[in-house]
Amino acid sequence: MVMGTGQRRTKRGVPEGLWMSCPDCKATLYTKDVEQAQNVCPQCGHHFYISARRRLDSLLDQGSLEEWFTDVRPKDPLEFVDRKAYKDRLRAEQKKTDLNDAIVCGRGFIRGRPLAVCVTDSAFSMGSMGSVVGEMLVRSIERAIDLSLPIVIVSASGGGARMQEGILSLMQMAKVSAALGRLSRAGGLYISVLTNPTMGGVAASFASLGDICLAEPRALIGFAGPRTIWATVRIELPKGFQTSEFLLEHGFVDRIVSRHDMRGEISRIFDYCGK
């Protein structure tokens, strides 16, 4: 399924039909063509949403993924209820995405080289980090240290730290960052791939801590949401604010890499930083 994302908050999961339109160049596209192009607009290169599993398929050598920690599932420690109960939200998100939580982790290969890899999925509760995402990241990082593997973490987390798990979500930021500190001390390589969107507590923890930070073009990446900032400063935000290009310009991203080139770029970094 191809889903529209982007800064204008297009509804997710709309174009189920044969044809879809690109929110950037407005071209009418044949859905199959877009899917074949890893959910990238063949006309203008707009990067659509791609699920964590499909991302892994496109990133790793064919069939090389060995998934880890597949039986870790979220709970509802705060018994959180807003307009809906968190328990019900979880069930709905699980059904919608066929995931336990907003992340898939495992070991795979890129051009014959093994790596640990974790991908968050923005279709599950905005890709937000609660206890499960934090735990699975830490376990993956620890395993990468044990097995001397490089680790690639792909972030697609507009939700930041997950509100419904309250303070426990906030603490995941410290927990994952501490694990990355260990990895770094152990001499392990961490490549962070920032995709649309990566915000809040995810941006302010593991997503920014890569030895190398790569970003897909025109992704929304930042700490505070544009609406929050506008509400505080009440002046018009600069054009292209909080995009990958903005981050590159301000020195927080090493390279902007299109989804098609990601495999090749990661493999080249392995060449330089491998042991």
Binding site: A204, F206, G222, G225, F241, F246
Partner: peptide, 15 residues
Amino acid sequence: PGIGAEERGQSQMIA
């Protein structure tokens, strides 16, 4: 939450 804070890497520094 401001423009300067984002330009100077708020998330990077907290991380």
